[in-house]
Design a protein around this nucleic acid. Structure first.
Lengths: 345, 345
DNA sequence: CGCGGAAATGACACCGGTATCATGGTTCTG
DNA sequence: CAGAACCATGATACCGGTGTCATTTCCGCG
């Protein structure tokens, strides 16, 4: 057993070591590793014992070389919100745990005309087994086509189905936004405003559509006079808020397409000497930490980002058996102090 | 040239293709790839031309197999602040760009007794070329020793030198905290309070030490009656804030060891019907986005996290030539509306 | 008991690079 | 101009696994 001798740290066992000790060929060991059914139970047990005692772990580089893919999953993102990125990342890692796959991160910029090529280079370079795309890069058709072409497994996370079921994980932003509208309507609001997210983001479209649908349930329409444009940043929320609040008549409630902008609205209220919810109720979307660090704390729509990441990971590894039907996640509302009945007026 | 024929997508060129077309052995191509000086200029140029026209990219799995390491850098972290994680990640990716290395992320939990073994497994499994450790896991001696033992390149990012120069990247939190103290003293504050960060985090110790050093410059000492414990969370900031603000005499300024807690103090002020900076000045640390979403906006200490990440990446790849001396980064203060002169009293 | 076919296993090439060492060609020396 | 010293290059093994296909073992059955 001199190959067990320490030299600095002990040499890592190879498949040959296992094969020799188990008295089989390395091909058989390989079969055991890959759970081939073509191995007798006894043999399998023997080999596993040796693997166990040696603490043998197959070399992913060598396996990857033969398999023509690495044991890496990529997360390609362009969402600038740190909390979204980290939650998603965490969820994906939850889903990857124990699978032998690890996570490589790759931010990108859709405005860069080369970004598709760049992403492709990245994927082909490391020979990723699969990738997970988050909004808004997940909404890019060219990139998805490219992935299909490369033959790389992929899952697109988006607020609406843009691809075949097995490639989609839908976060139903529309339903969340409906909740926001219902909540405000049930409180008695009739003049409700909306601040849109960044142009070209599907989530922005969905959140607006959902909001309108929710209002419709109460016989209301979204009046353009109560709508302002934003780009998901805090600053844009301040500006849109100031604009909406200065209009007359004034809406008694504002639904901002994300928490950052909702926080911006709170800021705008403060600048105008108003406060939520007395003067105006405010609802955000995402339910990130900013929702509870502003005062009053934001009523917001909670989307289980981490859970979504976990599911995306399972899906990209094809771990979820038969459940290859459309996978969708429903957000819910979290009511806090930023919303209340409209002012008596 | 039938090997150039498309079949779905075109087959990727291998080193053999390059060698054949260049009329040299694959070992020579290998030498060119690895910038060996043992290649005649003419030959090198020829080979490079072929590489160019073929768009040949060497397979990292194969290279890794031979080199016994992958072309991956790991980021091991346990800092719960999303913005820190994302900024750091971004910085590391900046530093890795064009190097052919990619980034694998690995969060961990120091409270898990197995976390060192887990990290080691991760590193050995993917045969990482190097890893970057961020606070507070960077402060763990056992993990560092393990890395040395494995022979994996590593860089520890921390607020104080804990290792040999070539393994350290120091973010001088102490200097930042001194700035905070100076700023408050220069505004005329004499009764200043401090909210500590999480126990066991080096940054918390350093920020306190720096704050005390800054006060000392003005002949002041940090009075225990003005100190409260926190754990870097918003909620702990609220609680510590309420506690400090209820003491009598009351400090006229509070330095919280991070922005989250400082935002918590703002919240506490609001609950007590006070406001910054009229009643109490507040200073945070990190200068993350929360510093500008609260009102009044926080005076804070800015630490160039992304820049630190970039340097860490260069260092782990040994890209910075002779500059293997202690690499340190100095934070600076950003003054906003949360600080002002003490109340006339 | 012998035979056929399926199940289990192994020999060997191969994935795409790098390391070692031998070899042929130059240049420098005396 | 021979010989040493060097430089540039290639042949071949090797990194640690998997694929292919041939071979051996096992089993049921006539």
């Amino acid at each position: 057993m001199e190959w067990l001798a320490e030299h600095g740290s002990r040499r890592k066992a190879t498949i040959n070591d296992v094969a020799r000790l188990a008295g089989v060929s390395k091909k058989t060991v390989s079969r055991v590793i890959n759970r081939s059914p073509l191995v007798r139970e006894g043999t399998r047990a023997d080999v596993n014992t040796i693997i166990e005692t040696l603490g043998y772990v197959p070399n992913p580089q060598a396996r990857g070389l033969a398999f023509r893919h690495s044991f890496l999953i990529g997360m390609i993102y362009d969402n600038p919100n740190p909390q979204y990125v980290v939650n998603m990342q965490q969820g994906i890692l939850d889903g990857l745990r124990g699978s032998g796959y690890d996570l490589v991160v790759h931010p990108c910029d859709r405005n860069n005309p080369d970004f598709v090529r760049e992403a492709r280079t990245f994927i082909e370079h490391q020979k990723l087994f699969g990738v997970i795309l988050t909004p808004s890069v997940s909404e890019d058709t060219r990139l998805a086509r490219e992935l299909l072409d490369i033959g790389c497994a992929y899952v697109r996370i988006a607020s609406v189905a843009l691809d075949s079921d097995d490639h989609m994980l839908v976060s139903h932003d529309r339903l969340g936004a409906i909740e926001a509208a219902r909540h405000l309507c049930e409180l008695g609001h009739r003049k409700v405003g909306f601040i849109a997210g960044r142009e070209g983001f599907r989530s922005s479209v969905e959140r607006r559509a959902g909001f309108e649908a929710g209002l419709a349930e109460f016989g209301l329409e979204l009046d353009d006079a109560f709508v302002a444009a934003g780009d998901y940043t805090f600053q844009s929320g301040v500006e849109a808020g100031l604009e909406l609040l200065s209009r007359s008549p004034r809406s008694t409630a504002i639904f901002a397409a994300n928490d950052e902008m909702a926080a911006g609205v709170m800021q705008a209220l403060r600048q105008l000497g108003l406060r939520a919810p007395d003067a105006v109720s405010v609802v955000g979307y995402d339910d990130f930490e900013i929702a509870i660090t502003v005062w009053p704390r934001l009523t917001s729509i909670h989307s289980p980002t981490r859970e979504i990441g976990l599911r995306a990971a399972h899906r990209v590894l094809s771990l979820d058996g038969e459940e290859v039907q459309a996978d969708a996640v429903t957000p819910w509302i979290v009511v806090r102090e930023s919303t209340g009945p409209p002012p008596a007026d």
